[in-house]
């Protein structure tokens, strides 16, 4: 049995599809809709596998007391706040992330598997819009200090002053965001004062519908993962990210700005590059073999 633990509904769907297509019994546990008690009562066997779609979630500590192996998907190659050796294996998407995590936690270097996260764009196609809202820039990264949220608000202010609409989309209630602090609340107030919109979407459909209205998605985080780029691409939204960290492994150079040059971001936003053609290697049919091989690599 493979248990796929999703932090938010939808994230990690590609993994589920791969496991199901390979004929593995798969159970999806949506962490936002499951109580800790329910997770604690899962009775796993020695051959079972847990795949935690956000490896930084401390719930792995609960899983570690169960039988079976645990794999995590690294969404951002930052330091773990707990012992990452709780994992039998960690999936990272880029060589950069592999190197960064090996430096941060040398003890897990041999457990890192570099593989694209499987992504199936078909579910997003109905949200694609031909009539975009003009000059609408969207931010979908987690609104955290690590992702330079203050820089994002400052950039949004500059964009608004030059005639753009700037929106930060949340897939959950803002107040339920992980790591929401007084600073974060202060920044949201500051952003709103400057005309930035912070929208908590009640459903995934609403989220992708609003996401698809944008012309450009901007990333200000120093590192990240492919999911938001792949979602943006599926929705016909072009993306801008710093030429830094792991982003050059995801995006063509036309979509990369000089890190973290505000003027260059504004310049690229004013004449955005085409929606990047990055989907191919992330399609489940193109990455399933590497993922299953990693799971079977005891």
């Amino acid at each position: 049995m493979i248990y796929v633990l999703q932090p938010v509904p939808g994230l990690g769907e590609g993994y589920t599809k791969i496991f199901e297509a390979a004929g593995r019994d798969t159970v999806v546990i949506s962490l936002s809709q499951t109580t800790m008690n329910e997770i604690e009562t899962v009775e796993s066997g020695r051959d079972d596998i847990f795949v935690l779609v956000d490896a930084h979630l401390p719930i792995v500590k609960t899983l570690s007391s169960k039988q079976g192996r645990i794999y995590g998907v690294v969404q951002q190659a930052t330091r773990f706040s707990f012992d990452p050796c709780l994992y039998d294996g960690l999936f990272v998407e880029t060589l950069w992330a592999q190197k960064r995590l090996s430096q941060l936690h040398p003890e897990i270097a041999s457990r890192l598997y570099v593989t694209p996260s499987p992504f199936d764009p078909s579910g997003l196609l109905p949200f694609c819009k031909n009539n975009k809202t003009e000059n609408r820039v969207v931010f979908t990264q987690a609104f955290t200090q690590e992702n330079l949220h203050i820089f994002e608000v400052y950039l949004a202010d500059l964009l608004i002053q030059t005639g753009y609409k700037a929106v930060h989309l949340f897939l959950t209630e803002i107040k339920n965001q992980p790591g929401i602090t007084a600073d974060t609340r202060g920044l949201i107030r500051e952003g709103e004062k400057r005309g930035m919109e912070f929208i908590s979407c009640e459903t995934r459909d609403e989220y992708f519908c609003r996401f698809a209205e944008a012309t450009v998605m901007i990333m200000t985080a120093p590192s990240g993962n492919a999911v938001s780029f792949l979602q943006a691409t599926s929705l016909g939204v072009t993306t801008l990210a710093p030429c830094f960290g792991d982003f050059p492994e995801f995006l063509p150079k036309e979509n990369l700005y000089r890190p973290f040059n505000l003027n260059h971001i504004l310049l690229l936003a004013s004449s955005p590059p085409a929606v990047p053609d990055i989907m191919e290697r992330f399609l489940p049919e193109n990455c399933w073999q590497r993922i299953l091989a990693a799971l079977d690599d005891e």
Partner: peptide, 8 residues
């Protein structure tokens, strides 16, 4: 430096 150009 041009804000916040790391290379500069």
């Amino acid at each position: 430096y041009a804000p916040y150009d790391l290379r500069e």
